[in-house]
């Protein structure tokens, strides 16, 4: 009995310790930010890694999500005789919700896991320790560029996802199901608000960028330096990022709608 309670306490304490380490880690990364200006090339390199290489999966998924939204939305809206609002439905679902969230989930799977594995392996092969020996701070040299690259890439990826999704919805709605093209766009333009809808989506995607990339680089940096430890860290990155994104999405939506 006492053992069980002690185990519970140990789990809680370990969790808190991890949280504390993550907080200190993020603080250190932030503190190294000013030195990053001299190292723009490093950030650029990482934007290529986490942004450009994630582009394909984002574009393909965005197109198909938009097309499915067009099909599903049409089938429901046509029952109410309001298939003209299909464009509005597709645009609002994508811009406000699916764009940022699905992009973040895909990002965690594609770029986040790669970041964790890369940094974890650097640690396992003692490259990070080697840098410290040469008086190079791995936090500013390795971690910070990757972190900021993720934060920069995420909103751009989410915007591309939403834009191509709307084109996909247009493809299915107007091309396949013969919704009027004028009604499709005019309903969308009349009801989608730049600040309330689009900017909120952008804010969401920036927050998700910080959270996903933060978790990915921390898990890599904090990994047990063995092959098994790196595998476990990669696994944790995907699980924690996905959970954090979905949970934060609810909180952010509630805050932005201001109706809770």
């Amino acid at each position: 009995m006492i053992d069980a309670i002690r185990n519970l306490g140990r789990i809680i304490l370990e969790g808190l310790e991890r949280f504390g380490r993550a907080g200190l880690f993020m603080f250190e990364v932030m503190r190294g930010t000013p030195q990053l200006r001299k190292r723009g090339a490093l950030v650029l390199q990482q934007v290529y890694g986490v942004g450009v290489l994630t582009l394909l999966i984002i574009l393909v998924s965005g197109l198909f999500v938009g097309m499915v939204l067009g099909l599903q939305g049409y089938n429901t809206l046509v029952k109410f005789g309001s298939e003209d609002t299909l464009g509005l439905l597709v645009a609002l679902s994508l811009v406000r919700e699916l764009g940022p969230v699905v992009t973040a989930l895909l990002f965690a799977g594609r770029a986040g896991s790669a970041l964790t594995a890369e940094i974890g392996l650097m640690k396992a092969t003692e490259q990070l320790a080697g840098m410290e020996m040469m008086a190079v701070n791995p936090l500013t040299r390795v971690i910070a560029p990757r972190f900021y690259a993720g934060v920069i890439a995420m909103p751009l990826l989410a915007a591309l996802f939403s834009a191509i999704g709307i084109l996909g919805g247009h493809l299915v709605g107007v091309g396949l199901l013969s919704v009027d093209a004028g009604a499709f766009w005019s309903q969308m333009q009349a009801k989608v608000d730049f600040y309330d809808d689009i900017m909120n989506g952008v804010i969401k995607s920036i927050v998700f960028g910080v959270v996903c990339t933060g978790i990915a680089v921390f898990e890599g940096y904090d990994a047990v330096p063995t092959s098994e430890g790196v595998a476990r860290a990669t696994n944790r990155t995907v699980v924690y990022s996905s959970l954090a994104v979905l949970g934060l999405d609810f909180i952010l939506t509630a805050l932005m709608l201001g109706e809770v």
Binding site: A91, V95, P155, L156, A159, L160, S162, A163, I164, I166, W185, M188, Q189, A190, V192, D193, F194, D197, I198, V202
Partner: peptide, 12 residues
């Protein structure tokens, strides 16, 4: 470009 398309073409 995607963001500005959202802003001008979608959000008007």
């Amino acid at each position: 470009a995607a963001l500005s398309m959202l802003a001008f073409k979608v959000g008007n």
